[in-house]
Amino acid sequence: MSLLRALGLILAAGGGVFLPLGLKASEAPVEQLSEALTGRYADHTLWYIAGGLGAMIAGVCLALSPKQ
């Protein structure tokens, strides 16, 4: 297994941990109230969701890239 493929799998796994954490945090009652009043989620929730999704996409791209 190449180093890029291993790094891609690690990134995808890390994103797979943070994305559900962010989605679960967005369903919390305080977060729902904050979103209803301000129209957006708290910064940490957005970072979990965006970071998890970005890490998953980058990890899959690295893992599936052709060998170098």
Rank of each mutant, 00 (worst) to 15 (best):
A36Q: 12
D43R: 04
D43W: 03
F18W: 11
H44W: 12
A42P: 15
A25K: 12
L3V: 02
G39N: 13
E27V: 11
R40V: 03
R40A: 05
P66F: 08
F18A: 09
T38Q: 15
W47Q: 04
A42C: 04
L21H: 07
P66Y: 07
L7G: 10
L4K: 12
R5P: 05
S2G: 08
A55N: 03
G14L: 05
A58W: 03
Y48E: 05
W47R: 06
L53R: 00
L64M: 14
A50C: 10
L64K: 15
P66D: 07
G16M: 08
G8Y: 04
P20C: 10
A58N: 03
L46C: 05
Q68R: 14
L9S: 14
S34C: 09
A55I: 04
L62D: 04
L64F: 08
Q32V: 01
V30D: 13
T38I: 09
I49R: 09
G16K: 05
V17F: 06
E35I: 01
H44R: 10
G59Q: 07
Y48N: 02
G54V: 00
A63W: 04
L19E: 04
A58Q: 07
G8P: 07
I49D: 06
T38F: 13
G14Y: 01
Q68P: 10
I10N: 08
A42F: 02
L11M: 12
I57G: 00
G54M: 00
S2Y: 04
L37V: 15
G54Q: 02
L4N: 10
A36N: 09
V17A: 08
E35G: 06
P20R: 08
L9P: 09
G16Y: 10
G22S: 09
V30C: 08
S65D: 07
A63Y: 06
H44L: 13
I57H: 02
E35Q: 15
L37Y: 15
V17E: 05
G51S: 15
G15S: 01
T38G: 14
H44Q: 09
E35K: 15
G8L: 10
V17K: 03
R40P: 06
E31L: 01
L7F: 10
W47P: 00
T38N: 15
G22D: 10
Y41A: 09
R5D: 05
H44M: 06
G59V: 03
V60H: 03
V30M: 07
K67M: 15
I49Q: 07
